[in-house]
């Protein structure tokens, strides 16, 4: 074989390998979706069934029994609300830090990031008791506020990086022309940083949607999110796999589809805009 042929074969093996790895990684998800269309008996059949007559019973049952729409609505409201609140606080702050940095700016940002490392359990009880006192237990408001707070450090970091990349000369030129700060933000910075702001918001929505700890511990039937609904299926319904799969599929489908569509923007956000 010539060198070229060897290279071709190597390439072919790599492609087969890539497909195998992809199938392996995707398999649990595929299996979950497949199981959601089985009856409970089919779900635990040995050997496992790949071909069967699909049923939609699980999905209708979930709707009847658990009020999926209410949980889904909670997820939507808390994810979007938390993200919006955090962005509202973060955009002006990150803007100020990026365009008028002081010696301490980077340290402040790293301090913010370090608050992200505090384990939530360490402050669970105070937060629980405080929200109980304020009558906020099992409301969407408490989740919106907490989601905004836990995502704020990451959002600040990403926005800071994006704003930094806007060439300062443009701003200086506009200041010479006497543009006001407000116009500077809305007409020059925002259009340039739009992609960055969108990536940041997308990432924040994904993180909020999948958040389980606070949702499990602070909410129940009123404001419970899909993540909490799924967790409630953990032990007692041990062998109701097809119903579990149906709930799980419903809970994940929106955000997975969202993730597929926004891959590029999410990578930007996930690396704090520091990897291109």
């Amino acid at each position: 074989m010539t060198d070229k042929q060897i290279l071709e074969w190597k390439n072919r093996f790599a492609v087969i390998g890539a497909w195998l790895v992809a199938i392996l990684f995707f398999f649990p998800i595929f299996w979950m979706v497949l199981t959601s269309f089985k009856t409970e008996l089919q779900a635990i059949a040995i050997p496992p069934l790949l071909v069967f007559e699909p049923t939609l019973d699980n999905y209708t049952l979930i709707q009847e029994r658990t009020d999926y729409t209410q949980y889904a609505w909670s997820s939507v409201v808390t994810s979007l609300g938390g993200t919006a609140l955090a962005m509202l606080i973060a955009i002006p702050s990150a803007y100020a830090m990026a365009f008028s940095p002081t010696r301490r700016t980077k340290d402040i940002l790293l301090w913010m990031l370090s608050t992200k490392m505090l384990p939530a359990v360490g402050v669970l009880l105070p937060i629980y008791l405080l929200s109980q006192k304020l009558g906020l237990l099992d409301t969407k408001i408490v989740l919106v506020v907490i989601y905004a707070l836990i995502n704020l450090p990451i959002i600040m970091m990403i926005l800071f990086n994006y704003f930094r990349e806007i060439p300062k000369e443009i701003l200086e030129a506009s200041r010479m022309d006497g543009t006001s700060t407000w116009n500077e933000i809305t007409q020059i910075v925002m259009p340039l940083a739009w992609g960055g702001i969108a990536s940041t918001a997308l990432l924040s929505v994904v993180l909020c949607w999948n958040e389980a700890f606070w949702a499990i511990n602070l909410t129940s039937s009123e404001a419970g999110t899909l993540a909490a609904l799924v967790a409630s299926f953990s032990s007692p319904e041990g062998l109701f796999w097809s119903k579990l799969s149906a709930v799980a599929t419903l809970a994940c489908a929106p955000i997975v589809a969202f993730g597929w569509l926004c891959q590029k923007q999410l990578v930007q956000g996930l690396t704090f805009g520091a990897v291109k």
Binding site: A22, L239, F258, Q263
Partner: peptide, 27 residues
């Protein structure tokens, strides 16, 4: 390649609770 990429990154978008339940039960 596009499909392989989508398949590979999907697990990251799955809720941790769902992920854990699927592995605990079905795997």
């Amino acid at each position: 390649r596009g499909i392989v990429r989508v398949m590979l990154i999907s697990p990251f978008f799955i809720m941790p609770t769902v992920n854990a339940l699927v592995w605990k039960n079905m795997m």
